[in-house]
Simulated scan of single mutants.
Amino acid sequence: MTDSQPPAGAGAESVPPLDPAQLGTYFVLMEAVSLLQHQVEQQLRAEGGISYVQFQLLARLAHGDGPLTMTGLADGVVYSRSGLTYQAGLLEKSGLITRDPSPDDDRATLVSVTDDGRALVDRVLPGHVQVVRSLLFDPLAGDDVRHLGDVMTRVRDHMRAQPPRSAASRRRRPAP
């Protein structure tokens, strides 16, 4: 899509259709992502008893520079605030993370990985890498990897130029 197209949610009658190459690329991308995500999810469940989202949260915390806020985590893994709160609750009950009030912001909660959480990431990471390498990188040549990385970085950066999902205002429930 180009920058000249209307934003998502605009009337369908004003949006030109995707050309066959764009449509084909979109479907191939979505199928490849689904196939990769399914295999990654299977590996993480089998080796660690965790979901892909839980792995993302633990890995970000384990390989980061310290605790992160819930909002920062939600933005980083592109997940809703409520969904992240639920997942963080499961991880906390399992002893893999801790959540504490931020000393700098009364509204923020800081999330930290525990030693058990870090150990779990270390245990499942080799299998995760093996699945990613065999499905995503093995069919590509060196230049393909660089090119795919460049293209997907541009796409991601374009998408990230929009406000993060966690910045969207919350809908108020009508009073009973």
Rank of each mutant, 00 (worst) to 15 (best):
D65E: 13
R81F: 02
L91G: 04
A62C: 14
A119E: 09
V111W: 04
R133S: 13
V129E: 03
G149F: 13
H128D: 07
A167Y: 05
G127S: 13
P126L: 06
G95R: 08
R146C: 07
D143Y: 08
P126Y: 11
G72H: 05
P126E: 10
H158C: 11
D104R: 09
R123E: 10
V151R: 09
M152T: 11
S94Y: 02
L125A: 10
V77L: 06
L125R: 03
P139T: 03
V132F: 03
D65H: 05
T153Y: 14
P164W: 11
D105Y: 02
L110G: 11
L125I: 06
S134P: 04
V132Y: 01
L136Y: 03
G117M: 12
G127P: 06
H63N: 13
L96D: 01
R156Q: 09
A62T: 13
S166M: 02
V132A: 04
D122E: 00
V111A: 14
P139W: 02
L148A: 11
G142H: 06
T153K: 11
A119V: 05
G117P: 05
R146G: 07
S94H: 08
V131F: 00
D65G: 04
V78R: 03
H147M: 15
V131H: 01
V151Q: 07
P103F: 01
D138E: 06
R165T: 08
R81K: 11
A108K: 01
R156Y: 15
G127H: 13
V111F: 10
R133C: 09
H158N: 10
S94L: 13
D143G: 14
M159S: 12
S102D: 08
A119M: 03
D138H: 01
V124T: 02
H63S: 12
H63D: 14
R160W: 07
S102V: 07
L91S: 07
D106S: 01
L61F: 00
A62G: 14
G66A: 08
